[in-house]
Each structure stands twice: as structure tokens, then as C-alpha cells.
Design a protein around this nucleic acid. Sequence first.
DNA 1: CTAATTCTGTGGGTTAACGAACAGACAATC
DNA 2: GATTGTCTGTTCGTTAACCCACAGAATTAG
Lengths: 238, 238
Amino acid sequence: MSQRSTAPVSLPVNRLIAGLPRAERNGVVARCEPVELAFGEVLCEAGEPYRHIYFPTTGVISLVKNLGDHQFLETEQIGNEGMLGATLILNVISAPQRGFVHGAGTALRMTAAQLQSSLRGNSALLGMLKRYLYVVMLKLSQTTGCNRFHDVGERLARALLIADDRTHADHFHLTHQFLAEMLGVQRGAVTIAAGLLQQQKIIHYTRGEITVLDRDALELAACECYRVIADDYERLLP
Amino acid sequence: MSQRSTAPVSLPVNRLIAGLPRAERNGVVARCEPVELAFGEVLCEAGEPYRHIYFPTTGVISLVKNLGDHQFLETEQIGNEGMLGATLILNVISAPQRGFVHGAGTALRMTAAQLQSSLRGNSALLGMLKRYLYVVMLKLSQTTGCNRFHDVGERLARALLIADDRTHADHFHLTHQFLAEMLGVQRGAVTIAAGLLQQQKIIHYTRGEITVLDRDALELAACECYRVIADDYERLLP
DNA sequence: CTAATTCTGTGGGTTAACGAACAGACAATC
DNA sequence: GATTGTCTGTTCGTTAACCCACAGAATTAG
């Protein structure tokens, strides 16, 4: 069984920032503005310049790719382990995808210009963002294969694990409909897959309120992609 | 109808290098060593440091992701529009995936250390590689959705267009088996999809020798992902 | 020339997921 | 308390692709 639910609750900090040396960390935090993220709020639009970049502390941001014909697919989920706007270090000012708040909470934010000035003379921050961007790339290519080869059940379990990680709680709000859109499958398929997980007492849910009962079993039900990506992250951003 | 087959053959140069200002370009080329790429040669292995980085001129390199259980999936194809090893600008010395030669030809190569020294004082090169890396990320997230939503026929057509671009010839060698592995589908599915394209006189093939007869029709048969990615490239790396 | 190998065509049975619809259960609102 | 909206369970026909297997054709090797 996982220890997480009994361990002390981690402080609402962003791990990328927390990993910086104290002096540089203070410099970054000083430039940031704490904000509330409201569910559904759109933080960036595909192809448009970032208004702000965000370091979530308790909120969760979803990046979704528009594939025409009203089809959307979540390509990335950003919690306190990451940031929105890392591609700015590639000198590209526009966002690659739409990003919206999918779990309400808090974040630190700054403008693109403030990030640029934070990066000057802060090589630790730049190094951190470079490694983070590399992890994002690894994640994208893993997901490419995951979407191709793994079935709805495995991918649902993986999505729930990620949600669990991001929200730092074994309980969160996600309807079948919402999960279906994240995974790019139809709602009925999620109902069936989630029903199986519930039968096995791995999760419990009613009307969007999902509780993870047995995290280890959930990891077994998920495809290996979850572990691969989690390991990549730990390896490159310890 | 496409003009490409009647237009003058483009010189065997790498477009990333060709896009640099003359002085910086000469500096980069001076550090490079021209090499032949032999079919099947493995140029980098997932997780291991790059021995060299490559700027293909006429050769084509394939990046494949291992998804366990002997399942592989091509995540990227690199021709003279790109390079192998761009992630080095993120200070990560190991390659994210296996890379092997999939179309024999020529390339310019240098060691990782030589690239680092080329980058010092060559801001045009760094800027170019940053934009290239951004395009690669866009491509990965597009492919994520493509693998999820588009059928074998569309994805086959897209793969053929890419092969056509990369080889700069309307004729190249790819067996059904090989295409199946690239697309992550079974061989029979490729035979059926390719047979349809041949019936429509869009392509012609015998025993792996594929000729594109009607490139415009091939674009119509492909999913929009081909065009989206081609446009991203042109927009960011003109 | 013969044998072996590679490439392609094709078959049939199986499965996961689609698309679309409907009904019941619960929640919110007034 | 009645109405409306949301969430979930379930159905049924359809489809794309799977898995596996075999056969013919073309090419290469002995």
C-alpha cells in the first residue's frame, strides 16, 4: 500500500522552484505573483503569446491539442511538479496548445518578460527548465505510443494516477465525460473501464467524486507508461 | 500537381545549416565531418550519450521508441530539414530514443563537444536549434493525436509524404513490413491501405520500391497532420 | 537450375471501441 | 415539491483493426 495518504501533506510549493538554491529561489519567488486558478479558466491559447507563465502550487493545468472537428485531446497535465510556459526558453513566445485550469487551486505566475529577466544571471533556473523541457519531450513521445497501443482501461488507470499525483489527494473531481475527453475516447468506454476498477475496489466514485482506494492496484492496472514517465522525472529532476 | 519532380534537384545541404548567416555557417561546416550513412546503422541508443550528432544531407534517420514487449514505434524521422541530437541544447547528453539509418545517404556530423563549442559565440546556430526543437515538440504532440484518431490509411499516406520529402525523390524503398513497424500496425493492414492507394493510381509499388504518382492526391488521402506539421516547420524555420 | 528467402495478397475468426440512444438516479434550483 | 440538468449504466448494431495463417510471386543465393 502506498504511504502517501498517511504521510505529512507536502507544502503547497512548486517543485521546480523548490529545487533551486536558496538565493536564486528567492529571486524567482520575488518576481512571482500568487494567484488563484479557477476551474475552466483559460491561461493560454494555441499559437497566441503567453500572457503569463504559471508555476502551479496546488492547481492543475491541462494542455489540450485541437485536432479539428471539435476533437480535443489532452497532451499534458501540469501540477506542482511542472510549469506552464517552459517553451519560452526556446525563445518562442507563443503557446503550443491551449492551457486551461482543470483542478482549481493556487499558482505562482509572472509575465514572460519577468521570466526572461529571472533567467539572466540565474543559471540554476535555466538548467532546471531545460531539464524539465527534456522530460516533457520524453513524456510526449511516451504518450504517442501509449495512445497507439494501450487500451482504455490501462490509459484510464494512468490518467487517474496522474490526477492523484497532481492533486496530492486520493480524492478529486472528474466526471466520466471529462475523462473521456482527456483520453480521446467516448464516454461509455470510460463508464465501463471505471466500473471495472470500482468492482475491484481499486477506486470508488459517485457523480464525479473519485476516490482512489488502492493506489498500488491502480498502478498494476495502468500501462507501464505511468512508471516510465515518473522515473524519467525523478531521474532528471530529483 | 506538384512541381517538385520537375524542379531542379535541391543541393544536398542540411537546411538548418543552410539557414545560418554565411560566417557562422562556415564555422559550423568547418567543424563537421562528412560521413556516409549505411542502411540500418544505429547512430544513438535510448538513454546512452550521443557519440556524434548528425545533420543529414541526403540520408534519413529514424527515431524509434521502445514500448516493451518488442513493440517499437517511430516517433520521428529526420532528413535534411533537421538534425539528430538537438536535445543537447537542453544540456542532456543522452539520447531520448534509438536512432538508426533508414534511408542510406550522407550527413555532416560532429561530436557533442564540437557542437557545444560551435554554439559558443554562434547565437544564430543556437537560435536555429531552439526553434527546431520547438517544432519537434509540436510534431510530437500532433503525432500523439494522430495515433489516437486517424486510421491506417490516413497515417500511411502521411508516412509516405514524409518519406517523399525526406528522400527528395518520388521513389524510395519501404516494404509493407517496415511501414507497419513505423506506424505501429500489423503488416496486413498496410497491404490493404497501400493496395487502395495503388488502385487509385496515387502510388505504385513492387516489393518495397514505392513510387509516388500523384502527390496532391496523396496529400488528400493523408490526415491533416501532415500539413499542420509542414506549416509549423515553414513558419518557424523559414 | 534449384532452393531458399522475401514480399505481397488474402482469408476467417476475434475483439476493442465507436456512435447513438435511452433510462434511472441524484443534485440543484426555484 | 416539482422541474431541470447532470451523471452514470446499459443497450445494439457497426466498424476498424487485430491475430494468425497460408499461398503465390519475385528475388536472391547456392
